[in-house]
Design a protein around this nucleic acid. Sequence first.
DNA 1: AACTCGGGGTT
DNA 2: AACCCAGAGTT
Length: 331
Amino acid sequence: MKRRVSALLAQWYDRGHRDLPWRRTADPYPIWVSEIMLQQTRAAAVVPYYERFLDRFPTVDALARAAEADVLALWSGLGYYSRARNLLAAGRQIAARGSFPRDYVELRQLPGIGDYTAAAVASIAFGEPRAVLDGNVLRVVARMENDPGDIGASATRDRFRAVAESWLDRRASGPFNQALMELGATVCMPRRPLCPECPLRARCRALANGTVAQLPVKLGRIPPERIEAVLLLIRRDRRILLRQRALSEPRMPGFWDLPSPEHLPAVRPGAPAGQFRHTITHHRYIFTVSPAPAPARLPTAAPFRWLDPRDAATIPLSTTARKALRLAGLL
DNA sequence: AACTCGGGGTT
DNA sequence: AACCCAGAGTT
């Protein structure tokens, strides 16, 4: 007697799963916010940001009225800041329109909502029968089917999506999708998966073939690039000199950061106070933090301001600046 | 299809 | 040091 994948998943999920805050609501707005924060970000890292964000912006109208700098300040440290900008832009579209999008097609048109997020919100909030395809699902499908296709290739994704859709419980798509992702996150993990505990082990072709550890296949990895840079720690009384990144800069436009020597050529950096590492995608930065005397006059080419570290949570401050201030014992 | 996102936890 | 995470936008 072969039971459906969805039945095996549902029984396993109902026996116990992580208690995540966005699973306690049926309101599409917080579900949407959670899905944006969860893009390329682990659930455990999202939880405190999610709580703070919804405390500050409890409704889509409250979000729509917010200043972008305030949204970015709450996002500061979570990374991938275009998510926050797109979230705000989409929230303003929704508020202007007067109603929350009601299905996958409408959701998919909003900035920051791609195939995954549209399917996730549509299924979890509205019960629409859409299968999600995220990193967890790709891994579970690759192993269940023992499929060595490159998960970065569109042909593989189309094939895997068809499998997920064939499993989908159309009457309970939200719980089904969450159960499948939960399985990938807590049992069918990238390394050292817990196959003996897996509710799908009897149907897993990779387990039967002994190829679990080789799946999924992901080709075309980019080698990391090492970049060294200096951050200047310039103090006046209790305050620290910050420089705002230009709106035209590709990375983190509008964010406040510590200045570097190229921004203040007249300043002579002192002996380093320390170093820290910072990684994003394939860039590995090594920052040296150097105290320096305040310049007699600040250049006018870039906007500067003085920050009392106690106000650090109120502005969009880069994580590198936070790390530097923490290293210096100022935060 | 390739590339980028100035994160960060886990192994 | 890899690996990769409830991905999306741009070129």
